[in-house]
Simulated scan of single mutants.
Amino acid sequence: MGLTGNGADRPAALAVDAGNSKTDVAVVGADGSVLSAVRGGGFQPPVVGAARAVAGLASLVDAALAQAGTARVGHLSACLANADLPVEEERLTELLTARGRSDTVTVANDTFALLRAGLPDEGPHTGVAVVCGAGINCSGLGPGGRTARFPAIGRISGDWGGGGHLAEEALWWAARADDGRGAPSALADRLPGHFGLASMPQLIEALHLREVAAERRHELVPVLFAVAAEGDAVARAIVARQAEEIVVMATVALRRLNLLDEPVPVVLGGGVLAARHPVLHEAVVALLAERAPKAVPQVVTAPPVLGAALLALDTTGAAPSAYDRLRTHYAPAGR
């Protein structure tokens, strides 16, 4: 069954952006109007299994469809965290298709939502995106629909960085600064101070005994950047390593797609990059200028579901005005 709204006379689409910590679902009219929106928890197939994760996602989809007054749409565009390998995308496509909420389904890693949000709607759809949030990942689109991507499943696939990793690095270096195994660093005082504790031994004990929940470790990332901005050598070295990893991923993807010599966007997003911490942002821009001088870095802060919705409009052949309406809804200032 098709859905129309605000003058649209073609089936609407479902846009899904499912990250590790939250999921956004929107029903979008063919004219680019957002007819309903629902937010829920994270999407974690490695933790709960693919079938259970999709069942949770389906409940959000059903809620969004109910708000929009329909049970089915023409196309579902799902950009999903933890869809890191082609075999995972295929399995998730099968599970979502079996739910019967749309005529067609496309599944992509959530990095492609960020990339699409940063690309011009009139084309060409070529460029690279690096997400640095809880983890780190990169994807790229080249001429003819060619793609470049990484498994991005942790250290076994060569990854370094993201908020979780940065918090662990900050703790490691702070512990060694405190006990003398490493160089002195203000991190040894500032990390425990964030939790109202007097020393690193107290913080180590609190984390080990779970008096400070492990989930709160991400709170240390802004502390790391603040200490780096004050000139602390240890903190700055950690941030410099993160900048290096971001630029390495981007340049490798550009090289794979033969785009190093083309003026294409390098889209930067995720909580760590979207915050524009000066020490990190300036290092990334400088390294990109050195290694990929024609790349055009840009930070996207619009909700990633915008990218999933734009991909849905690409599939349904929407008019240019639909893209403008959709972008205005999610990001009135542009990108």
Rank of each mutant, 00 (worst) to 15 (best):
G135W: 08
A148W: 04
G144A: 04
D179P: 00
I153N: 04
V128C: 02
G163W: 10
G164P: 05
I136L: 15
V131T: 05
A170V: 02
G154N: 08
D178T: 07
G142Y: 01
E169P: 05
A174P: 01
L141Y: 02
A134D: 09
F150W: 15
S139Q: 10
R155E: 15
G127S: 07
R155S: 04
D179R: 03
L171N: 00
A148E: 09
D179Q: 11
V131S: 15
T126W: 14
F150G: 09
W172L: 14
C132Q: 08
A129L: 09
A183F: 00
P151I: 14
A175P: 04
W160P: 07
W160D: 03
C132R: 01
G127R: 03
T126N: 12
G127E: 03
G144P: 03
I156C: 08
A129Y: 05
D159K: 05
D178H: 08
G161K: 05
G154A: 12
I136W: 01
R146P: 07
P143S: 03
A170P: 11
A134I: 14
G154V: 03
S139R: 13
P143C: 02
V128M: 03
E168I: 08
G145T: 12
V130M: 04
H125C: 02
V128Q: 05
G142F: 00
L166K: 06
G158C: 11
G164S: 12
D159A: 14
S139H: 15
D159Q: 04
C138Q: 00
W173S: 01
G182E: 00
R155K: 11
G145P: 01
A152I: 15
A152G: 15
I136Q: 00
E168F: 03
L166T: 12
G180Y: 11
A167M: 07
R181L: 14
H165G: 04
V128P: 00
G161L: 06
G163D: 05
D179W: 11
N137H: 13
W173T: 10
C138V: 07
G162R: 06
A152S: 15
A129N: 09
C132I: 12
G133C: 13
R155M: 11
A183W: 02
I156M: 02
P143N: 02
S139L: 09
D178P: 08
S157M: 08
G162A: 10
W172M: 06
E168L: 15
T126R: 14
S157K: 08
A134L: 15
G182Y: 01
G161R: 10
A177M: 08
W173K: 12
L171I: 14
F150Y: 15
R176K: 14
L166W: 01
A134Y: 09
V128D: 02
D159N: 05
A167Y: 01
G133K: 04
R176W: 01
